[in-house]
């Protein structure tokens, strides 16, 4: 029996020579195994093993891309930001401590990168999102026809509404609500990632939810 699994044997009724074996993978042990392998990968990558670092990227690329997309609002910026995130991760990997939460650490870098990109964008007086009608890369392209087109249209409109509401949030509030409500982290974890206090994060989350509600009220309930 492998480590991290539990085997249950049950004798079949009426047939003493037959038994049913059920092997259940224990999630705690499995998570520990993943963490161990990730820790090894981090050690190797910190020593300069690019193959190990590529494995780390494969492990975390979806989270990073989702986070950057939610922070920046379009695929092109999300790609550039994710690339910069992984470059910084590689650069500062030697500073990472094994007792830290790796993905929390990566989230912190991601927030910093997105904040830098947002600042650059504001300096160039560009818009936050690229949800223009003619933009081919728009993430919320509305399907033109087909089965359930009405639902899809309404769904896309709602998503665009939320995207615009998110675009009006300050960077800190946006990061807080993305990490708390969309990435599902606890308030304490968000505070740790943002180098802030839980009270501050709660205040930012409250303010962000209020602004989003007001924005939605203006367009949905008028």
């Amino acid at each position: 029996m492998s480590v991290g699994s539990k085997q249950i044997l049950r004798m079949a009724s009426g047939a003493p020579d037959m038994a049913l074996a059920v092997e259940i993978q224990l999630p705690v042990k499995a998570l520990s195994h993943n963490q161990t392998s990730l820790a090894r990968l981090i050690e190797r990558a910190a020593a300069g093993d690019t193959a190990a670092f590529e494995q780390i990227m494969i492990h975390s690329q979806q989270r990073v891309m989702a986070m950057t997309w939610r922070m920046l609002g379009n695929e092109a910026d999300a790609r550039d930001a994710s690339q910069e995130v992984f470059l910084r991760v590689y650069k500062y990997l030697k500073r990472f401590k094994q007792n830290q939460d790796f993905f929390g650490w990566v989230y912190g870098i991601t927030v910093n990168v997105c904040r830098d990109i947002t600042k650059e964008r504001q300096q160039h007086s560009e818009r936050f999102t690229s949800f223009d009608a003619g933009n081919e890369e728009s993430a919320f392209a509305i399907p033109s026809c087909g089965e359930g087109a009405d639902d899809a249209v309404m769904h896309a409109q709602q998503r665009e509404l939320i995207a615009r509401a998110m675009a009006h949030l300050p960077v800190k509030e946006r990061a807080s609500i993305v990490l708390r409500d969309l990435e599902g982290l606890s308030t304490e974890e968000v505070a740790r990632i943002l180098n802030s206090s839980a009270t501050t994060v709660r205040s930012q989350i409250s303010s962000a939810r209020r602004k989003i509600k007001i924005y939605c009220d203006q367009y949905l309930r008028k």
Binding site: M65, W69, A78, A139, I162, D181, L182, C216
Partner: peptide, 9 residues
């Protein structure tokens, strides 16, 4: 609930 739809493609 609407916010939950703010998911990346």
């Amino acid at each position: 609930q609407l916010l939950q739809q703010f998911a990346p493609p």
